[in-house]
Amino acid sequence: MASSSSSSLSRVVVKSSDNNLFVVNKKVASQSQLLKQCIDNMEEKGTNDVILIPLSNVTSNILTLVLEYCEKHADFADDDNNNQELKQWDHEFLKKFDYATLNSLTMAADYMVTKSLLNLCCQFIADSIKDLTVQQIRQIFDIKNDFTPQEEADIKNENAWAFR
């Protein structure tokens, strides 16, 4: 698609923490505010070189997922935001992952300032938490019980009324 006339960059190179390089279309990269900022800064300086953006917190398999998401959303960027097809895709997209991946994806979305993805992940995690019991949450997310027995009894006591 036509980008703004002043721009000279059409692609950027993104480097993951494990040193894999990804060549990303500018429109796709703009879905991440972090990348967009980098591109904008470089364009202001008027550089014509291909720029390399190192992402020290994102591994390549997570970055692949983030870019997959960005690519899909870049395709739909000009459409109505409430596009049903896109929502469906979002849901299917997240459903594939285990929770460890989902957590990493959430952190990556936060780091790369991809707000819609971050929101999506948060909502997805919240949806998985709801309707679960304490034990189930611990089990599914693999959380150690860090409370002392006394503390746990106190909290249980405090909350008992809500579970009747």
Partner: peptide, 27 residues
């Protein structure tokens, strides 16, 4: 682990839950 999510993100997630689930999460 989900425990290592930054606090603001985790707050965001918890705030999307209904009270009963928040109570469960507190435990």
């Amino acid at each position: 682990s989900i425990i290592n999510l930054p606090n603001d993100i985790m707050s965001d997630i918890l705030s999307k839950l209904l009270a009963k689930s928040v109570l469960a999460c507190r435990q």
